[in-house]
Amino acid sequence: MRPRLALVPGEPAGVGPELCVRLAQRPANRFDLTAFGDAATLRRAAQALNLPLRLLPAEALAQKPGDLPLHEIALPGAPPAFGQPDPAHARAIIDSLELAAHACIDGAYQGLVTGPTHKASLNAGGIPYIGTTELLADISRHEVVMMLARPGLRVALVTTHLPLREVADALTPAALKRTLRITHQSMRDDFGITVPRIAVLGLNPHAGEDGHMGREEIEVMRPVMEALRAEGMNLIGPLPADTAFLPDKLLGFDAVVAMYHDQGLPVLKSHGIDQAVNITLGLPFPRVAVDHGTALDIAGQGIADASSLFAAADLCAELAHHRMNKEPA
């Protein structure tokens, strides 16, 4: 049985709709798609790309490239001009995400793929929006972890969008334990890795160098890691971050847990973001997003690279397949 994925284009003035149209051109041999969004926006994107698009009822299945089942959440008024987000559309954009998430929770879909949103426009439209990861955590009432991944490298984060001076205070035993447990469980459930090998980066240079460059590794990290190792987790570290990403070392890890955003993600993105994706670990369904923004400056020009959305859909289908075929505990 192929997984059925809910697809949310994101900001209608950005490149998300046209990337979804490109995704609809691929043969449906690994998964089935249903978009949640505005029909007029998708048709306009197809016209800009000069690609076929036949919107079908949400419960239908695509029969040929260019078919896309749609659960319509109409925008108020016409689609915005390319590159010009309209705060009046904020509610409809959030409704698309919320309805798709609830449909996944209810079991109608086995995974969620999301395009890029424009935070400033959503907030200007009266939505107190931090990010889709946080929105999905609230909807599902699950604790989550943000992971960025590309072929050969998966990086999960203990802290995400914090000023650097706040990171050390946010690195609590509870936060580290939660991140490691969710990452470990996701490696098993979603990626099918029975005994995942998880590298844990130290917070300080040289992983604190036995306390001479900071004591977080000694006082916070090691006690947590020892306790979780006693539960059966295979945790390596704390490791100096400047050498942990060497190619020969990465071969020994299934995932890397970084303490803060810019400790792990620049390395991942330096290898190119065309195949990079954003995964939300800990949800009751797989969610994978593109690892790029709305690209308002090139929207409607037909030059946006769809590789990240293709990678997101392929990985979401893979994760859904693992969950669908997991034997009950």
Results as ranks from 00 to 15, higher is better:
25 Q>D: 05
26 R>M: 13
27 P>S: 12
28 A>Y: 00
28 A>D: 05
28 A>L: 05
28 A>M: 03
29 N>Q: 15
29 N>C: 14
29 N>E: 15
29 N>A: 15
32 D>F: 06
35 A>E: 03
37 G>N: 04
39 A>V: 13
39 A>C: 10
40 A>N: 09
40 A>P: 06
40 A>T: 04
41 T>D: 05
42 L>G: 06
43 R>E: 14
44 R>G: 07
44 R>Q: 13
46 A>C: 09
49 L>D: 02
50 N>F: 05
50 N>H: 10
51 L>P: 12
51 L>C: 09
52 P>M: 07
52 P>Y: 07
52 P>Q: 07
53 L>W: 01
54 R>A: 13
54 R>S: 13
58 A>K: 00
58 A>N: 08
58 A>H: 04
61 L>R: 09
63 Q>T: 14
63 Q>M: 11
63 Q>R: 12
66 G>M: 10
66 G>K: 03
67 D>H: 02
67 D>P: 05
71 H>G: 06
73 I>K: 00
73 I>L: 14
73 I>N: 08
74 A>H: 10
76 P>C: 11
77 G>A: 08
81 A>I: 13
81 A>H: 13
82 F>A: 14
85 P>G: 06
85 P>M: 05
85 P>T: 08
86 D>R: 04
86 D>W: 01
86 D>P: 12
89 H>D: 13
90 A>W: 01
91 R>L: 14
93 I>F: 05
95 D>A: 14
97 L>I: 15
97 L>S: 01
97 L>F: 15
99 L>P: 03
99 L>G: 09
100 A>V: 03
100 A>S: 12
101 A>P: 10
102 H>G: 08
107 G>W: 04
107 G>A: 09
107 G>Q: 09
108 A>V: 15
108 A>F: 09
109 Y>G: 08
112 L>Q: 00
113 V>K: 01
113 V>N: 00
113 V>R: 00
113 V>P: 00
114 T>Y: 06
115 G>M: 05
115 G>C: 10
117 T>E: 07
118 H>T: 12
120 A>E: 14
120 A>F: 07
121 S>F: 02
123 N>C: 14
123 N>V: 15
124 A>L: 10
126 G>Q: 07
128 P>T: 10
129 Y>F: 15
131 G>P: 09
132 T>A: 10
135 L>Q: 07
135 L>E: 03
136 L>H: 01
137 A>I: 09
138 D>Q: 13
140 S>I: 06
140 S>A: 15
143 E>R: 11
143 E>A: 14
144 V>P: 01
145 V>S: 03
145 V>M: 03
148 L>P: 06
148 L>K: 02
149 A>E: 11
149 A>F: 02
150 R>D: 11
152 G>C: 07
154 R>Q: 08
157 L>D: 02
